[in-house]
């Protein structure tokens, strides 16, 4: 068994995530993996409270997140895993978490970041990390909302 989908979104839980993806995945549990967020009590609290009241949210750092994700990947319960950056997902993957697909859902622009597609911008480091993920056998796709058709990262990467 492996995690069906890990979404990279720098806003973590927001509109479409709550509304669309939980439904699309049939997931009733959210796991957020992010070192900085896991350290921040206030953000942890807000994220927990922002999800629908019947959906438990766990906010973990990469080390704890990897252990938890391996555990969850082995169980049949669908789970929605969210991360802020490709580095986190690569960290999970390298720690042995089986991940079928990484979805690039929201990566804002900034200095040194290049726009890949609509609201998805990436830095050279992230590009390398995503390529590494693909090399490790995890598919990378862009799918901003659950109703969108997924675009393979590879098809956009070649034009870079």
């Amino acid at each position: 068994m492996s995690l069906r989908l890990v979404r990279i979104d720098d806003r973590l839980i927001h509109g479409q995530v709550v509304a669309g993806w939980l439904r699309a995945l049939g997931a009733r549990r959210i796991v957020i993996v992010d070192d900085a967020t896991a350290r921040d009590e206030f953000l942890r609290d807000v994220l927990t409270l922002a999800a629908p009241s019947d959906v438990p949210v766990e906010v973990l750092n990469i080390a704890d997140g990897a252990i938890r994700c391996i555990e969850l990947a082995a169980s049949p319960e669908p789970v929605f895993v969210l991360a802020r950056s490709p580095r986190t997902v690569l960290g999970l993957r390298q720690a042995g978490v089986p991940i079928e697909v990484v979805d690039l859902g929201g990566m804002g622009s900034g200095p040194g970041r290049k726009r890949l597609h609509k609201t998805i911008s990436i830095s050279p480091d992230e590009l390398a990390e995503l390529r590494e993920l693909e090399r490790l056998g995890t598919r990378v796709e862009i799918q901003i909302v659950a109703d969108d058709r997924p675009i393979p990262f590879r098809s956009l990467d070649s034009t870079h």
Partner: peptide
């Protein structure tokens, strides 16, 4: 950046 996601949800 921490609040904009959850709050927009």
């Amino acid at each position: 950046s921490g609040l904009m996601g959850p709050i927009s949800g």
